[in-house]
Amino acid sequence: MSGLPPIRSITGPQPDTGRLAPLPRISMPGPRPFAPRISAFTRPFWQALTEGRFISARCAQCERISFPPRNLCRGCWSQELAWVDLAPQGTLYSFTRVHVAPGAFRSDTPYAIGIIDLQHGPRLMCRLVGEIETRHLDQSMQMLVLDYDDGPLFGARLAATAAV
């Protein structure tokens, strides 16, 4: 991992060390249907995502990586945390396709969301793009940047899918 300074002392992620290739990007239509809030603490995450990097907070005491990034380690209550690059590949633990959605997402239906276990942890939930079926459980997934008009979200697709 890239040895970034402790979270409390930085305002954004440091330049990519070059060890990890930038995340593939997919252009999404319109603004994000339900945009996240961005706090002083989570701003580095969203800034890094804009730059094609997928990062989160790792506890310097017990080395647990949390996701979403939290300002307190759930494992040991340490606040000595550092931003680290996450392996942008993982496996599909489960997914669903949503057919009846909140009003903000209705034009997207049906859409898939899934649970991804990243190679070195953590587990997260995100939008899935491209083909996804029951037979793909436990298959390799690639994390992505979903570029909306007003900012990014993260997502995933089957790793076997050809680059867009």
């Binding site: 249907p33 989570t42 997914f95 669903t96 969301i113 649970i115 029951t134």
Partner: peptide, 27 residues
């Protein structure tokens, strides 16, 4: 439905979590 900034943003509905349990269970 989950973390409002990191999970709800993808359009999860309350029963979506159970649906993912079902998918995993059948698998």
């Amino acid at each position: 439905t989950g973390d409002v900034d990191f999970q709800s943003v993808f359009g999860a509905v309350p029963i979506a979590w159970y649906a993912m349990d079902a998918q995993r269970y059948l698998h």
